[in-house]
């Protein structure tokens, strides 16, 4: 366990000792701030029945942030170490591949969650000015953050996988961006989630990220979504582990 914590602490530290971490956090703060500004203008004083969080997730801003931030966070996880050679010093210490993969994932996920804190600030500002109890609901906020966390875990797991495949951070970022965009586009193709239609549409609709996040933001934690996201996360972590182990087969 102490190896996991040591690795995770160092991994998390790299975000904060370099500019990377601060740039990402300020980028996300700027983007969520902007989208809230847009939101407030759109509302224009007229009453809305929906909680603020749900309105926020209806704008594509959240998805842009998620896709880009995920690529930037995960691209360096393995690719950078391989490029600089520290991967060799890491892998020749008595650490297991599982410890490496899990600690890198955990550190990236923790950073990802820290990255969303400015969003929380925005929510509170809205609540303060809306002067309405219904504008922000703690339960809804919790389910929203559960959704953000689960989506983050999934995106980070495949971002990490992309990084484990290559030496170039650029290629890793492109790969994870590509995959994220493909999943995002799938949401539009498949139509509303859990729609009745032929079986292909049914299957595709299960992968409709857009709709699923909407549910979380609405305050609904659907076990089907939770299970899907968790299993996808574990699936990509498993692939990452294989990619890391592949060094021993070559």
């Amino acid at each position: 366990m102490h190896v996991f914590l040591t690795l995770m602490r160092r991994e998390l530290g790299t975000f904060f000792v370099s500019l990377t971490g601060y740039v990402i956090i300020s980028g996300v703060a700027l983007l969520s701030g902007l989208s809230f500004c847009v939101l407030i203008r759109q509302m224009g004083g007229s009453g809305y029945q929906l909680p603020v969080t749900e309105l926020f997730f209806q704008s594509p801003m959240f998805w842009f942030t998620l896709l880009i931030a995920n690529a930037v966070i995960t691209m360096r996880l393995y690719a950078h170490e391989k490029y600089s050679g520290t991967y060799e010093t890491l892998m020749t210490t008595p650490v297991s591949d599982l410890q490496v993969v899990s600690s890198k994932f955990a550190a990236a996920w923790v950073f990802y969650m820290i990255m969303w804190l400015p969003f929380l600030g925005c929510c509170y500002i809205i609540q303060h000015y809306a002067k309405q109890a219904g504008a922000l609901d703690t339960g809804v906020l919790l389910s929203t953050f559960t959704g953000i966390g689960l989506f983050g875990a999934f995106f980070i797991s495949f971002g990490g996988f992309a990084s484990a495949l290559t030496v170039s951070q650029m290629v890793a970022a492109m790969l994870s961006l590509l995959m994220g965009l493909a999943l995002f586009a799938l949401s539009y193709v498949s139509g509303p989630a859990f729609s009745s239609g032929n079986w292909q549409e049914q299957v595709l609709s299960r992968f409709s990220l857009f709709e699923q996040m909407q549910e979380f933001a609405h305050g609904v934690i659907d076990t089907r979504s939770v299970l899907l996201l968790l299993s996808l996360t574990f699936f990509f972590l498993f692939l990452t582990l294989r990619a890391v182990e592949s060094r021993r087969w070559k």
Binding site: R10, G13, T14, V17, S18, S84, G85, T86, E88
Partner: peptide, 8 residues
């Protein structure tokens, strides 16, 4: 080439 974590 002695790779090290330069930021540490």
């Amino acid at each position: 080439n002695n790779p090290l974590h330069n930021e540490m």
